[in-house]
Design a protein around this nucleic acid. Structure first.
Lengths: 207, 207
DNA sequence: CATAATATTGAACAGTGTTCAATACTAACT
DNA sequence: AGTTAGTATTGAACACTGTTCAATATTATG
């Protein structure tokens, strides 16, 4: 029995999260279990439930840390002073690289689905927003041609699109014939989207 | 005890799949369990395991049927004789509508993740390919400007992108600020991508 | 040193996927 | 009709799962 006050609640929390992350990395989402985490940090299940509401809470906390890690990863690889297109390509390549390097953790980011009606907590949305903000910054050089609002919207569309390509590739829903890499596909998307976006002088409406 | 030969194996299979689908629709992916399905069709777990390899197999079979349903849904709503852009917008709107109408089943389509190294079975990839082929057809009117190969690639990129928008929206990873609908985002994507794609005279390479 | 307070446990509960010997049934053959 | 062979179906058993909470172990205080 671990002596009381051997670790503070916060220490236990962090230990659990760290251990849980490595379980997910090694065995995937489904390999995670309360007892496994508890044993690995030298405590029992009961203690885990003093520190986390339930397993879903644990998963959400891990995802929060993954979003932080992803943010740092992208920042470290972003080409700050490049033009819009180059920055975006760099960013998308970094995103893809993260997903391919940390596949189980990246997968878990989207396997957590809120019950119908429930929303993701504000702190989580903030972390998500911070990652997404990098795309906005990369698109900023186009500010002269478009309103801030328009760039905001284009960022979302682009990010979601790159994400979609990445997801279908990693989950093997896209390798049916052509043999393009994820990076090539993202490149094609950005090329054409930006050419279209730059060519549009006014608000983007159909036709 | 259900009498033997009351139902053929195939009948049991179909009954199980139908029941399982409605459980997923009503209670989501996590609501599905072997005993629940077995009871609902008046058999016991053992029988289920004569007909399906395991629960993952059951899920994959349901997903196959969902892909068929999605294909029919999209076909019924596609604007066959319209120009490329309009067909694509129609198609993306239909896709989004399906995802929003049959959210749990649509979600399950992407929650099934193959173990590292394993691939999705060929029959499943074929069904996937058939859905994806609709996008190719919609893009076909642009054939004059682009090679078949190029259109194939553009289809994939577009489909994956619409899918990404749809996914992040439905899983609430995208509603941070702007208040665009999924349809508006998909519209923006298609507008700009196609404007860029039409403007490009040769192979799409960066720059 | 006794007492109050609290950190930690681990057995218990109701569920899960999966297996497989035992049973219930049907069809074929005297 | 009665026996037998063959097979469809069962359901108890196993090793797990998340979650709870009375009981216990440990510490700090008076």
């Amino acid at each position: 029995m671990a002596r009381r006050s051997d670790h503070s609640r916060e220490e236990i929390r962090q230990m659990a999260l760290t251990v849980a992350e490595s379980i997910v990395s090694a065995e995937g989402y489904k390999g995670l279990s309360a007892r496994k985490v508890a044993n690995a940090i030298g405590y029992t299940v009961g203690t885990l439930y003093l520190v986390f509401e339930n397993l879903d809470d644990l998963v959400l906390q891990i995802n929060g840390r993954t979003l932080d890690a992803l943010y740092e990863w992208l920042r470290a690889r972003s080409a700050d002073d490049a033009e819009a297109q180059e920055s975006l390509v760099t960013l998308s390549e970094a995103y893809i690289a993260y997903a391919e390097t940390e596949t189980p953790r990246w997968n878990m980011l989207f396997e957590y689905i809120t019950q119908q009606g429930n929303e993701l907590p504000a702190w989580y949305l903030a972390k998500l927003n911070r990652v997404f903000g990098l795309v906005e910054v990369a698109l900023a050089p186009l500010a002269s041609h478009h309103s801030k609002r328009e760039i905001e919207r284009a960022s979302r569309v682009l990010w979601a699109s790159v994400h979609g390509i990445c997801m279908l590739k990693i989950r093997q829903r896209l390798d049916v014939a052509g043999g393009q890499t994820t990076g090539e596909m993202a490149g094609m998307l950005i090329d054409n989207f930006l050419r279209g976006f730059a060519g549009a002088t006014t608000k983007t409406k159909r036709g």
